[in-house]
Design a protein around this nucleic acid. Structure first.
Lengths: 194, 194
DNA sequence: GACGACCTACCTATTGGAAGGTAGCTCATC
DNA sequence: GATGAGCTACCTTCCAATAGGTAGGTCGTC
């Protein structure tokens, strides 16, 4: 059942890897065709245009991200542990190098030259992620499980920014451990009473 | 004196703007030629290749950055104020939109597909900036002017990552104020005794 | 008359994409 | 149960535009 129409998924998976490596203009149809094992123009059968391909890709990524956060809400009760799990997820992604960067974070850095349709999806991801983090912060504060200095919103934005910066540093240093080096103090500061 | 051989500088300045907007593959010689008012092949008279152009660009950027940090060391004594000035510099850059992103931060996100010569310069910038920040942290700690939780090195990496993440968020939200929203608590936490 | 700065005229490879064809499957109809 | 319509999934061929880059020339200045 998963083999049915898997080519479109293969194309998306491949494009994801390529975008994570070098952004919107860092890959071409030829690159995808080589990896997927298909002729270059055949990609148009599955996606009308490059914009369409990337928009679909980001939209699906966002769906999966939302599903992942929902699962986290269900499986982990403690707000502090939720943040820890979120960080652990990315730590694992970066370590095994499958997708060592958030697609939306990477695309956001190129926002000025991004097709508007893609840019919309990217901005939506930032808003959604920040909202979720703010809700976790808020709940953690109420339950006395998280120690906030500023408002939940500000703490959430700071958290998100630091995580993105940590991904960048890990990449710049070529050292996956750098992600943990930066994010661990962040978690400690939020969960420790001082 | 500054008009002498200004074309090379114009090309570099233009390329900087374009890279800041969309990364290494986000601009072409044609783009530069249009802005500078020169024919496309004439760029080769000043820079042998695109790699050469960008490598020169990043090398010069690094020189200016180092000069800027040195000036900061001379003009501002207090470590906490040095960090504040560094943030204020970027806050101004982002607000007036001249160069609302660090070139090296943007290029770092594309590191896997960057020509090695450029990648080397980018990595060097990260190391140098982190070293400077660590030295400021260390001095601030000794002088009792900065309150560190972890080691100077770890605090420096966290600081740098958060600043980069703040640039990204400001871009993603299309809101320059977001940079200050994220970085102000960072400065407060370091300079406040609590 | 050498040189720097820039030009025109090209070149080759690659870009995303258009056009039209074909192999094989499903399924209703006769 | 053969026929044919229509589907998906891919193919080949082609294209205009753009990529970065080369060769060789012009022209003003020292």
């Amino acid at each position: 059942m998963s083999t049915v129409s898997s080519t479109a998924d293969d194309i998306l998976a491949c494009a994801l890897t390529l975008i994570v490596a070098g952004g919107y203009n860092g890959f071409s149809y030829a690159d995808i065709a080589d990896v997927v094992g298909i002729r270059k123009p055949s990609i148009h059968h599955h996606f009308a245009s490059k914009v369409d391909l990337v928009r679909t890709l980001v939209a699906r990524y966002r769906e999966e991200a939302q599903a992942g956060l929902s699962a986290l809400e269900r499986n982990v009760a403690d707000p502090a542990e939720q943040l820890k799990s979120y960080i652990a997820y990315w730590e694992a992604c970066i370590k095994d190098a499958t997708a060592p960067f958030c697609v939306c974070a990477l695309l956001a850095s190129e926002l000025p030259i991004l097709p508007e349709e893609v840019a919309l999806e990217v901005r939506a991801h930032f808003r959604h992620l920040a909202s979720w983090l703010a809700s976790v912060m808020e709940r953690g504060k109420r339950q006395g499980r998280l120690h906030l200095v500023g408002t939940a919103r500000v703490e959430a934005e700071g958290f998100m920014a630091t995580v993105h910066g940590a991904m960048l540093s890990a990449r710049a240093y070529g050292d996956p451990k750098m992600f943990g080096t930066v994010t661990r103090p962040l978690l400690d500061r939020l969960s420790t009473r001082h």
